[in-house]
Every structure is written in C-alpha cells, then in structure tokens.
Design a protein around this nucleic acid. Structure first.
Lengths: 123, 123
DNA sequence: CTGTTAATTAACCTACTAGTTAATTATAGG
DNA sequence: CCTATAATTAACTAGTAGGTTAATTAACAG
C-alpha cells in the first residue's frame, strides 16, 4: 500500500473491520471478543487478518497480556481521515442548505451550534 | 462490493482517485482534463476505470456534452462518509487535548481525562 | 465522405485480498 | 508434565483490482 491515507481508507472499506472499530470505540477488547460476532461467518485466522489490516493502517494498536491481545482504537489515523474530509465539508454542508451558516463559522467564528467548526484549526 | 459505504471507502483508497476528486472540488472537468496529470503514469483506459469506480461509489456524476463527458463531484456520498466519521469524532478531538471541553458540552462533567466512555452520544 | 478528437470497450495479465484448513506458538492452571 | 485456551502462521485458492494494448464508438470539422 502506497501512502498512509490509502491504507486507512482501504482498511475502512470492509464492514467487518468497521464493526470491529465500532466495538473498540466502546473500549478495549481481546481478539476473541472481537471475533465472537463473526465466528459464524468466518474463521479465527480471518479475524486475525482483519485485525492486521486495521493495525497496519494505524487504526488500532494491539498489546500483550498473558495469552490475550487487548486491542485499542487509535485516534491518530482517524484524525488523518477527518483532516482529509475537511476540505470537502463544504460540499455536504451545502447540501444541507447551511452553507451560509458554515461560511459564518469559518470567517467570523461565532455561533457554532453544530459540528461545523471542526476545522477552525486544521493542524 | 457489498454496501455503499464500503464502496465509497474503497474508492477513496487510491491516491489517483483522491486527486481526481480534489480537482473536481474546484469545478467540473472532462475526462481528458482529469487525465492530464496522470498520462505519464498511466493510460487513458486506466483513467476511465478510475472514474467508473468513483461513479459507482456515487462520488461523482458524469454527463454528456458532444464528445465530452463533464464530471461533477457529488455531495451525497461524501455526506455518508462524514456521517460515519461522526461517531468517532471524540477520538481525534481528544487527541487535540480538548476532551474535557468536549465532556463539558456533552455531560456537564468536568475533568475526565480518559477516553473510557467514548460513545456517550452515539448518534 | 474523411480525418481528428474524446472516450469507452474488449481481452488479457499480474498482484493482491479475503477466505479456507491444518499446524504451531505461547501462556495458564491443575 | 499435561491439557486447555488464545492467537498466529503457513500454505493454498478463488475472485477482484488495476494496469496494459488494440479496437471501437461517437461527435464534430472540413
């Protein structure tokens, strides 16, 4: 995989992996915890592979504790995706018919009632 | 490709296609306009294929005008991605060291430094 | 009608993805 | 030491992604 962002998007392009992330957003979990909802659809080695993809993309980190491998979601990679998304925000906010509100928040920076502010300080 | 969101992420997992989107975010463009920056790296049929991927993912729309195919970026698909991202926002906002601000706005709590509760407001 | 430009389609190749089963490693516990 | 549990590795397979070249379609301009 060429660049980091491509690896991240690629990792997200799979419902099993997104479900794993969703589970991890509620707290740490071992491989077998993460596997449980999928063991009727696929084998444990398949799970291991999915986790490797998430790990290489930097979306999770895995540690060791006895024979378990507790996994944690990782903020950094998600931040990169969010950062990339920022440059397109205007396109979907516009489609909500809130473009002018949006423009107010980026130019005058008050009155942020919605998620719109997000990028007032893009790194 | 199974679901729509997977198709969208998959389409975004390629730097050529992201560059095309970036170009389209500045306005409509024909296939050959979009191809120009890449014709030293790949052929025109390859470009056509990339555009098909973007189109199937709903990220662009293509129309006809004489022998040209003007392409436009499409807000809806991006909105879906943004919507998916929302549930994880807390993870990268936290990494900006604004977690307690966030927690104040959501719960009224002060001074929680850890991410344990991540999804207090899952959609 | 002819030639040129724009773009797509067809047929093919290679490499990678996502899955499998079977074997292996590592740790804990009796 | 022996066995069960947790997870990974190895070896293989089918299908898909991303590229190629050559041929084809379509519209316009003389």
């Amino acid at each position: 995989m060429q660049d980091n962002l491509s690896a991240t998007f690629s990792a997200l392009a799979d419902p099993t992996r997104r479900a794993m992330l969703a589970r991890l957003s509620e707290g740490e979990a071992n491989v077998s915890d993460l596997a449980k909802p999928f063991l009727n659809e696929m084998s444990l080695p398949a799970i291991t592979k999915h986790l490797k993809v998430l790990e290489k993309a930097g979306l999770i980190t895995k540690s060791r504790e006895a024979q378990w491998r507790p996994c944690k979601i990782n903020a950094e990679a998600l931040k990169d995706v969010a950062g990339w998304m920022e440059q397109y925000r205007v396109f979907w906010e516009e489609s909500f018919d809130r473009l002018d509100e949006y423009l107010k928040t980026v130019t005058g920076n008050k009155n942020k009632k919605k998620k719109g502010k997000a990028n007032a300080r893009k790194k």
